[in-house]
Design a protein around this nucleic acid. Sequence first.
DNA 1: ATTATAATTGAGAAAGTTTCTCAATTGGGT
DNA 2: ACCCAATTGAGAAACTTTCTCAATTATAAT
Lengths: 148, 148
Amino acid sequence: MSHFPCAKEIDAKEVLKEKGLKSTPQRLAVLHVLHESTKYLSINDILDKTKELLPNTGLATIYRTLDVLAEIGLITRVHFEDGCHTYAYSSDSHGHHIVCTTCNKIMDFAECPFDDYLENLSIKTGFKIKNHFLQLFGECNECAGSAS
Amino acid sequence: MSHFPCAKEIDAKEVLKEKGLKSTPQRLAVLHVLHESTKYLSINDILDKTKELLPNTGLATIYRTLDVLAEIGLITRVHFEDGCHTYAYSSDSHGHHIVCTTCNKIMDFAECPFDDYLENLSIKTGFKIKNHFLQLFGECNECAGSAS
DNA sequence: ATTATAATTGAGAAAGTTTCTCAATTGGGT
DNA sequence: ACCCAATTGAGAAACTTTCTCAATTATAAT
């Protein structure tokens, strides 16, 4: 089938294979779409952009594919304070995200210096903390630059 | 109308008044329900528990009320990795949450020692960070205690 | 207390979103 | 090239959220 010349395509195929999942054009296309975009994409945006690559793609496939890709860590859900979540490509499976509240640009960053803090909090609260979810909202430099 | 003897009821009335919003029994009841519960509550859970206090409450009112209460900071949305969000009472408008992945208990904590880190990241990424959202997942001591 | 009025509510309809079903197709191993 | 389990597309079904509007009600003014 057709190719989406994405730097991560080979990695993705590897990961899919490891998990016993097929590398279908649909899965690679969705991944490509998310990887290309620096902005928030709704489900329909993802469907539309995927259809540019694979015109017959169905909506159910998008839902299924996003679930699969999130499950294996190739993408991450991004939550908004209102409304609900969308998905973004993660360069690192532990990636956190910064979201621009003006243009919806999403940038991921892997740094996570919270380990000491979390250990502390773990003792205080009695929770055995397994996972955390940090997301920042703000304005990217381009949006902050334009008149407010 | 009836009373829900909640420690925060007076505060809530104050806040609602400040914002020019009415203190309706529905709003106080929903707040009471969230305040009582230490666990994740779905929309229908919230509706059911609210109906125990006010039997005629409609679903649309729950949605509207949650929006209003979140807007003014009396409650906070809680997101889950899969599925979507729910709401929890916040003792502090800057409250973060810890969620038990076994029993769904939600505990809020106000501590937030990230300011230095965020300033740093702000410089690095060019984002003017306005808001952040931290949520921890783990096991509470009770659940961790029981056999796994 | 009574009244006026704008905000809020309940109920069901409408709109929107997500999941399910199943026959057809296809990726990947042999 | 073949086989088989995994995956897909399409539409139906289920579920969730928002909208509409007449009736109700909290609050402020009288």
